[in-house]
Computed example of a mutant assay.
Amino acid sequence: MLVQRLPDTSMTVALASGGREYLGWGMERHMQADLFDALNANTKATGNWAKGKAPKIPAYPRPKARPEKKKAEKRVSVAEIYARLSGR
């Protein structure tokens, strides 16, 4: 079943993206974080620093990307699937 036309900040889209930490991370928030980082990089590159060394400016905090899980090659029987779903 494919769910369409959900807002990109919804819980369903967040869970499909990787987890609850993606909740609220729509296109606008990603663009704002990228703009924040670009402005910091520009400030760092063009600044006139007293000691000649630019300070470390932290990046905007983003949700951590989870490594993708590899598919298991093991076959599962219908009885094992039923046992898992029924909680037995």
Rank of each mutant, 00 (worst) to 15 (best):
V13Q: 02
I57N: 06
R84H: 13
A14L: 04
K44S: 13
H30N: 10
A72K: 11
V76G: 03
K74M: 06
V13K: 00
K56C: 02
A54V: 02
A54H: 05
L23I: 03
M31T: 04
R5T: 06
A16C: 09
Q4S: 09
P55V: 07
K71T: 06
Y60H: 11
A59L: 10
I81N: 00
A50S: 11
Q4M: 07
L2G: 10
Y60F: 13
K51S: 12
D34A: 11
P67A: 10
P7K: 12
K69N: 03
A14V: 06
I57S: 02
R29F: 06
G18N: 03
W25D: 01
N40G: 09
A41L: 08
Y22D: 00
R62C: 00
A79E: 15
I81V: 15
E68F: 01
A59F: 07
A59T: 12
R66T: 10
V78E: 13
T46W: 13
G26E: 03
A54G: 05
S77E: 07
M11L: 15
D8Q: 07
A41F: 04
G87S: 08
D34F: 02
L85D: 12
V78N: 03
K51E: 12
P61T: 05
M31R: 11
G87E: 12
M27K: 12
A79L: 09
L2V: 10
A65F: 04
I81L: 15
T9V: 09
E68L: 07
G19K: 14
L15M: 14
K53G: 08
M1K: 05
A50E: 07
G52M: 08
G24H: 00
V3D: 03
G18S: 05
K71V: 13
Y60W: 11
P7T: 08
A33L: 01
M31A: 08
T43F: 15
R66P: 00
G26F: 00
R66L: 14
L39H: 06
L85V: 15
A33I: 01
T12V: 14
T46G: 04
A14D: 03
A16F: 05
T12W: 01
N48D: 10
W49V: 11
R84L: 13
R5W: 04
K53C: 08
R66V: 12
S17D: 07
G87Q: 15
P58W: 02
S17R: 12
K74W: 02
A14E: 09
P55E: 06
R88N: 06
S10L: 06
E73I: 05
K56V: 13
P63Q: 08
M1H: 12
L2H: 06
A16V: 09
M27L: 11
L39V: 12
S17C: 11
E21M: 09
L35Y: 04
P55A: 06
